[in-house]
Simulated assay, not measured.
Amino acid sequence: MKAAVLESGKRTLEIREVEVPRLGPTSVKVRIKACGICGSDVHLVLHGTLKCSHYPQIPGHEASGVVEETGESVSKFKKGDRVVIAAGTSCGECAHCLNGRENLCKNLGVFGFDREGSFAEYNVVEERYLYSLPDKIPFEQGAILADAVSTPYNAIKFRGRIQDGENVAVFGCGGLGIHGVAIARALTSGKVIALDVDRGALENALAYGADEAINLKEVKNAGKALKEISKGVDVLADFSGRTSNIQESLRAMNSGGRMVMVGIGRDPLTFAIPFSIIEKQITIAGSYGSDRRAIPELIDLYVTGKLNLSKSITGILGLQEINSGLRDLEDRKGNPIRIIISP
Rank of each mutant, 00 (worst) to 15 (best):
K29N: 11
D211V: 07
D267V: 02
R31C: 05
S276V: 15
A285I: 10
I299R: 09
G334M: 05
L13M: 06
L145E: 01
S230C: 14
K333Y: 09
G80K: 01
S90G: 10
F119T: 15
V192F: 03
I282G: 11
P21E: 00
P343E: 10
A285C: 13
I229V: 12
E218Y: 03
E212G: 11
I183Q: 04
T243W: 02
L108H: 05
V110S: 14
G174F: 09
I322F: 08
E19V: 08
C105N: 15
A143H: 06
F77P: 07
H61D: 02
G289A: 12
T243K: 01
F171Y: 12
I193A: 02
F158H: 10
F77W: 06
G325T: 07
D114H: 03
I284T: 03
R185N: 05
F111W: 15
M1P: 12
I37T: 12
L236F: 01
G109S: 00
P138G: 06
P134Y: 05
H47E: 08
R128I: 11
L46A: 05
G305L: 06
Q163R: 15
R101W: 10
N103W: 02
A184L: 05
S240M: 03
K136G: 11
E127P: 07
G39E: 09
V125E: 01
N154W: 12
K217L: 12
F271S: 02
A272L: 04
L236Q: 00
K29D: 13
I282H: 11
V66P: 00
C94H: 15
E121I: 12
G65C: 01
A201C: 06
G117I: 09
A210S: 05
N215V: 09
E14K: 14
R161P: 06
T12E: 13
L319D: 03
T26H: 07
E212R: 11
K333N: 14
G24C: 15
N335F: 03
C173Q: 14
F271W: 00
R251H: 09
A4L: 12
E69P: 00
S8K: 11
V18D: 09
T70H: 00
G71P: 04
G223I: 07
K227R: 09
S27D: 13
Y302L: 07
K106L: 08
L216P: 04
N167E: 02
C97G: 14
E330N: 05
I340S: 06
V84G: 07
Q141C: 01
Q281S: 13
E166A: 06
L298Q: 14
E7A: 11
L13N: 02
A86V: 05
A285R: 14
A225F: 09
D211L: 06
L301S: 02
V66S: 01
N245W: 04
E218C: 08
C52S: 03
K280G: 10
I299M: 07
T49C: 04
G209K: 12
D300I: 05
L187G: 06
T151C: 11
A155I: 10
S150N: 04
S73Q: 06
